[in-house]
Design a binder for these strands. Structure first.
Lengths: 204, 204, 204, 204
DNA sequence: TATGAATGAGCCTTCATTCAT
DNA sequence: TATGAATGAAGGCTCATTCAT
């Protein structure tokens, strides 16, 4: 279970400190990778962000690949569980959908660099891990689709809704949301707009 | 208008052949860059795609940068004009919107590698060209927003529609459309789904 | 003052060792460049001279250009000061001239590769640094000319001496001296011969 | 005897035209090599100087090396003969020396690019040709030395003159002369100054 | 805990050269 | 007579990684 990969044998008391520092290293890596792309981000850039010498990174990660893996792991953590929890709730479909959108967008606020890195750079993961992630994403897509389908079944959504596509559309809409957030466009406004348009449409 | 960069002094009759070959080189570059990303795509990869030696590329392009520039130029060509033409038409708002979506998605079918490369790799362009493209994109976004605003004015769209955001949402929705096109999901189906959901919403 | 270019963040105690090694690298570069010319000397040649892998050089210099800059800096260091010191002295003009010649030739003995590289390869420096060096050389030429002019004023040299040209002639004479030094021609003999001929001429 | 190397089988009438064009190509090569150095001058630069496509050069020369060989041949042609002729004359030593200086400097005026290229770039010649040239230079140096020695024997020059070194000094002095020719320094003035200083010295 | 030093692999690019036309 | 097209070799440089300390 040492998901964080690489991990020297340490006395328990040291371990916490080590993990904390590893987190900082990861934050720096995620920041630089989000900004410059995986191949555009050199380990020197990342070390520079931290103010340490470049080989020091290798004390926390066995390779750049591994760091990306860990970043993607963090950037995707909890999505399935949160969506499942929402679906298990009892509210109206429209509220479940609003919640799902908010839940999906939330990490964009809290860990934006992890999310961006995962979204745009996961294709550079080693094949195995990439496929593993692909399966996870597939499950999430399916779950989201189930949410819509149950809405249709419940008579809350249009009976002819293309649930498969609609799910993908909602998800990608949330994913790109961050890129048009700016000085005058907040995440909340975006989140609401996505839900409003999706549920009620633009036409009078 | 298609500057095409680099161009040895050639007699007119040979020029056509040269430009045709340059186009092939560009196609290969776009294909590899779309697949592997700009930094992930080596000039050796591109040459391999063409079955030529790697320095041969430099007979057609002065640099990898320049090739990306040209790819982005092609990948963005005509968008503004097509959207403007649609807006200048006389149909109902809903039809204009459907047309705009189809027009935006169309290049995804015809020149997918150029579109993908532009969308994902433009940030690696040299600063000047990148900013130039940024301005172009800004204009397009604004034009799309005007389309929606005129729909609101005409009483075809909801008076409280957040046109700025809605425009961005539609555009990005179209942009990502290609990534969920697969064996059983066609571009047409996607195009229709985007329009349907946007116009009428998912709720009954 | 010796900028030394490139310099990783090092603890003070390590700095000395780093600078010493940098000096060795520079020595090797100067040797190869003096032998083969700037463009004829590949970084691989230089690394070979040191017995290290070629990229190792980049730990000590940011670029080949920068190494040439540093070589030229060293190859020109102190000339102005030494000449000025001689001119500030109180001896007879003839002795000052002999001293100036010896001073000019001295680095040819101590750091021949730096001097040769500077003399023959400075034209390949980046424009800015090249112009900077040009100004330095101009000042030196002027100072040397002043030395001769003061000799004329003092009545030690012929009143019709073309001091401008004579200065250039002496300087270049010293510069090329190294190329005819061989088994039976020493620097001392050369240095004396230059001064003798210049002062008293060859005719009876 | 086809010294010009490379030479296709041509009817006699065409030959002249071919040789004339070859001369132009050589002039261009010498110009660019003088300006940028042998390794700094690309065949593309040379072709650009001529306004032709770059492979066209290979119609006149088998290789860049060969062009340099030919340039050096031209740049050194006649020196020995001219000096010999002067020595065979009957004038006073001082006039022979003045004539020798003028003769040595003359090509700097007429074919400066060949002279510069020869002087600075001959070390990049293929070994054999380089050594051959070295022998020629050696002969010239010896002849010049004989001129001085005969002057000493005739009682025209100081009996203790270091003729070996003095010859080298004069020659190199002439060689570098061109580099300080400028707006206000002519070749004539330089030529005279060299002779004056050499013969009578600078001291009163 | 962290780093100084070094390196193999690989990248983009330039260049002299070739050859069919 | 000249060139369009292509290429092998090499060049300078960057990068992820290693390892002794």
């Amino acid at each position: 279970m040492p998901e964080g990969g690489h991990l020297p044998l340490l006395k328990k008391e040291k371990k916490t400190k080590y993990l904390r520092r590893q987190q900082e290293v990861l934050d720096a890596a995620a920041a630089v990778i989000a900004r410059k792309g995986y191949h555009g981000a050199s380990t020197t850039d990342i070390a520079g962000e931290l103010g340490v010498a470049q080989p020091s990174l290798y004390y926390y990660f066995a390779s750049k690949d591994e760091a990306l893996e860990e970043i993607c792991r963090i950037g995707t953590a909890g999505y399935l569980e949160r969506l499942q929890a929402i679906m298990d709730g009892t509210g109206a479909t429209r509220n479940k959908i609003r919640d799902a959108i908010r839940a999906h967008i939330e990490p964009v606020r809290t860990i934006p660099n992890y999310v961006k890195s995962f979204q745009r750079e996961r294709r550079y993961l080693p094949a195995e891990r990439r496929h593993e992630l692909g399966r996870l994403i597939g499950e999430y897509d399916k779950l989201f689709r189930l949410l819509l389908e149950s809405g249709v079944s419940a008579g809350d959504l249009k009976p002819d809704l293309d649930c498969e596509l609609a799910a993908l559309m909602l998800i990608t809409q949330c994913n790109v949301a961050q890129y048009f957030v700016g000085d005058d466009v907040s995440l909340d406004r975006t989140s609401t707009a996505i839900a409003d348009v999706f549920l009620t449409g633009a036409e009078l």
